[in-house]
């Protein structure tokens, strides 16, 4: 992506010993994960295993208890104060860091009062501080990349689910994020609309966008990702190239998970 300096071979996202509990419920219990530039990593795992929580921790929508998440070598949510104590960053610092990670949501969450074009422009104007003309041209460009040039003036309520989700992708990708986080972005769609959205993701992958996606689309994960991780009991239980992971028989939990989703 433009604007992403290639800082040698450092991973874009580097997660170590990530722990997160909601009250007594320990959801993440020591996640280790590296995502290299241009990698497309799919996260699979059963419902409630913490996949969404992991993504939300990466772009600081959720805070975590222990461990570290680094984005291009910068600790995302915490910093050390003068006395060397770990401090959570304030909301303004977090906002700046969040702009470096894009997020696409299961339920789209387009801004309902803004047109498709304005949805994509908002972050460019207010966060990237672009002039109207520049923001408009970048946003228009992204809308055509997701195949919606003709829908620029439409409100979300006038778009199909698949179209809304493509606007959602454009909104996140236009910011030029270091990594795009996709959380089950096709699971709220009618089956016939899934393909158009996956095609866009596929194209982004081919263009070199670094992506971390939670998905239940096993066929797509297998075909589009460079790596797959299976989360179980709050840890990365299995990790590898798609071929290896789907062939993996050593892990019972993965085997039963795959058996279950293939029946969906």
């Amino acid at each position: 992506m433009p604007g992403n300096p290639d800082t040698t071979g450092l991973p874009v996202v580097s997660i170590r010993g990530l722990e997160k509990s909601f009250g007594a419920l320990a959801v993440l219990r020591g996640i280790d994960l590296d995502v290299a530039r241009g990698d497309v990593v799919s996260i699979i795992g059963s419902s409630g295993s913490g996949k969404t929580t992991l993504l939300r921790c990466i772009n600081a929508l959720e805070t975590y208890d222990n461990g570290s998440i680094q984005l291009d070598g910068v600790e995302v949510q915490f910093r050390n104060d003068e006395a060397g104590r770990r401090q959570r960053r304030n909301e303004w610092e977090l906002a700046r860091l969040r702009a470096e990670t894009g997020m696409v949501f299961q339920l789209f969450y387009l801004f309902p009062h803004l047109t498709a074009l304005q949805n994509v422009m908002l972050g460019l104007r207010k966060v990237r501080k672009m002039e109207v003309a520049e923001a408009k041209s970048v946003a228009t460009d992204w809308l055509s990349r997701v195949g919606l040039a003709d829908k620029a003036g439409s409100l979300p309520s006038q778009l199909s689910g698949g179209q809304q989700q493509r606007v959602g992708i454009a909104r996140a990708a236009a910011m030029g994020p270091k990594v795009l986080l996709l959380d089950e972005i096709t699971s709220a769609l009618d089956p016939e609309l899934v393909g158009e959205v996956l095609a866009v993701v596929r194209k982004l992958a081919d263009d070199g966008m670094t992506m971390l996606m939670v998905t239940h689309e096993m066929a797509f994960a297998r075909e589009a990702s460079s790596r797959i991780i299976f989360i179980d009991a709050g840890r990365v239980a299995v990790e590898g190239a798609p071929g290896e992971v789907f062939r993996e028989q050593a892990n019972d939990r993965l085997r039963s998970f795959l058996a279950r989703v293939s029946h969906l």
């Binding site: 772009n59 929508l61 906002a95 700046r96 969040r98 894009g102 972050g123 207010k126 966060v127 910011m175």
Partner: peptide, 18 residues
Amino acid sequence: VPRGLTDAGRAIGLTPLQ
């Protein structure tokens, strides 16, 4: 206002006031 909508704003880097 759905929580997810607020999150969508935060996710593109809007400050709390924005």
